[in-house]
């Protein structure tokens, strides 16, 4: 991990009116690593992610991408940088097939301006193949007929298809069974092995220990620790999540 971080947040803060959602958070992701983001409900995980994705902007602090300071003010900005977010609800259209979902909003067209279904199908197959997604039997079946794990795989494949550099996964295993969770975690690992930076939000420490390289713990809007997964234990993480030391007590006026 000697190279420079792919994404670096320096002391970012976000408040919604009187509510301080994030306070001076530092956060780094390197290319080729899975960075887990853990914390209790209301710890600010979603706020942090939305800031990176451009859904809202941080009030304070600096964001660097690939070593350069950037300003992300809209989802379009983050997409242009190569940041893709797979939200928990996946946002797939059930009535469309796998190919159509993967290309939704970025369809390929022929020189006549009509949809180029064939090259989209080839490319979708190639992407799924490169991610070793083996469980989808036909890319021309409607997404409605797929299992939770398969849908997650489609959403991830959709996110990595656009030369993305950083993929953010919001609770990708929350609704999955044992076997499907395994498949998705394997997929997450493969993304990092391809050199992408991955941010994995999870409530499930078991998943974190299985797939992540490092983990950042948020508590009440502040980062209370960044650990190498190999050098920490579930016990320590739980302590950090529930009782990590805060530099700033919420509700107290700053001096």
């Amino acid at each position: 991990m000697s190279q420079k971080p792919l994404l670096e947040l320096k002391s970012v803060s976000k408040n919604f009116g009187a509510v301080q959602a994030l306070y001076k958070v530092d956060f780094r992701v390197f290319p080729g690593e899975v960075m887990a983001l853990v914390g209790d409900n209301g710890a600010g995980k979603s706020t942090l992610i939305k800031g990176i994705a451009g859904i809202h902007t941080f009030n304070d602090g600096e964001v660097q991408f690939d070593g350069k300071p950037v300003s992300i003010t809209s989802p379009r900005d983050s997409a242009a940088l190569g940041i893709e977010v797979v939200y928990q609800d996946l946002a797939l259209a059930d009535n469309l097939d796998v190919v159509n979902n993967m290309f939704l909003g970025r369809e390929k067209t022929t020189s006549f301006g009509t949809l180029d279904e064939l090259s989209m199908e080839s490319e979708a197959l190639a992407t799924l193949e490169s991610l070793s997604v083996t469980t989808i039997r036909s890319v021309r079946q409607a997404v409605a007929g797929l299992s939770g794990g398969q849908r997650q795989a489609i959403a991830v494949a959709k996110a990595v298809m656009w030369n993305s550099k950083l993929v953010i996964l919001d609770e990708p295993t929350a609704a999955l069974g044992v076997a499907q969770t395994r498949q998705v975690l394997n997929l997450v690992r493969r993304l990092a092995d391809r050199g992408l930076g991955v941010i994995l939000i999870s409530h499930n420490l078991h998943d974190v220990f299985e797939v992540a390289d490092r983990v950042t713990v948020l508590r009440l809007g502040q980062d209370v620790g960044e650990h190498f997964v190999k050098e920490t234990t579930q016990q320590k993480l739980v302590e950090a999540i529930t009782a990590g030391e805060l530099t700033h007590v919420p509700g107290m006026q700053e001096a």
Binding site: A91, L92, A93, N95, L104
Partner: peptide, 11 residues
């Protein structure tokens, strides 16, 4: 099929 998915896809 899913207006939210369409919106997020930039439609």
């Amino acid at each position: 099929g899913n207006p939210e998915a369409a919106r997020r896809a930039g439609i």
